Simulated scan of single mutants.
Amino acid sequence: MTNEHALEISLWIDRKENPYIENNPYEFQLLIRGSRNGFNVNSIFNICDKVSKTIIILKVKDTGEILGGYNPLEWENNDDQWKETKDSFIFSLKTANMKNSILSTSPNGSVHNYPNQLELRFGHALCLIGNLKTEKRCCCMKSGEYPRLIHSNEFVYPNLYTPSIIFS
């Protein structure tokens, strides 16, 4: 993630129109890294338990695509629950292969906190399941909660529960 990406995410968190140029109002702290802490969703729940205002960043293998989501609420590692929040969002960041970043927000967005099922979801639009590296069950899907697609149309399927991108 570049400094430009961090400034753009900060802009989205604050819902500002004018971009931050240099002075980022936020100091991002890396809490978990797959290569260091493991790629299991359980690691995310354990390390981020009771932590709010988190950004999850994923790099899609072999595409260079960078996807993610922002959760203003706390993750909880001991209770399966669905949480509604108008302040969450999902995104795809600008890369060498993609001209512009994509932001998907919703007044009725939700975050699904399911540690007992090893699932972390932003509605049905961005789903992290099990071991992100070996199980290959994570996906992006069409979703009413986050209506703007965060990935290219070539990966879109009409069925809500058909995975459109599988992360590996």
Rank of each mutant, 00 (worst) to 15 (best):
residue 73 L to I: 11
residue 163 P to F: 05
residue 106 S to D: 05
residue 68 G to C: 06
residue 96 A to C: 11
residue 148 R to F: 11
residue 118 L to M: 14
residue 2 T to F: 06
residue 144 G to E: 15
residue 16 K to H: 08
residue 110 S to P: 01
residue 129 I to D: 07
residue 64 G to L: 10
residue 138 C to I: 06
residue 34 G to A: 03
residue 126 L to E: 03
residue 76 E to A: 02
residue 159 N to G: 07
residue 82 W to R: 08
residue 135 E to C: 05
residue 82 W to Q: 11
residue 147 P to N: 11
residue 44 I to C: 06
residue 136 K to W: 09
residue 96 A to V: 11
residue 5 H to W: 05
residue 47 I to P: 00
residue 70 Y to A: 02
residue 20 Y to N: 04
residue 40 N to W: 02
residue 7 L to W: 07
residue 133 K to C: 10
residue 155 F to E: 09
residue 6 A to S: 13
residue 130 G to V: 03
residue 85 T to K: 09
residue 87 D to T: 05
residue 33 R to P: 02
residue 104 S to M: 07
residue 18 N to C: 10
residue 80 D to N: 15
residue 134 T to Y: 15
residue 102 I to T: 04
residue 149 L to P: 03
residue 47 I to Q: 08
residue 43 S to D: 14
residue 153 N to I: 14
residue 23 N to L: 11
residue 110 S to G: 13
residue 77 N to R: 11
residue 68 G to L: 04
residue 25 P to T: 02
residue 94 K to Y: 04
residue 19 P to V: 03
residue 163 P to C: 10
residue 32 I to S: 10
residue 101 S to A: 04
residue 34 G to S: 00
residue 17 E to M: 12
residue 122 F to H: 04
residue 99 K to N: 14
residue 72 P to H: 12
residue 162 T to Y: 10
residue 162 T to I: 12
residue 133 K to Y: 12
residue 151 H to K: 15
residue 63 T to L: 11
residue 74 E to M: 07
residue 60 V to P: 06
residue 94 K to H: 03
residue 89 F to V: 02
residue 43 S to Q: 15
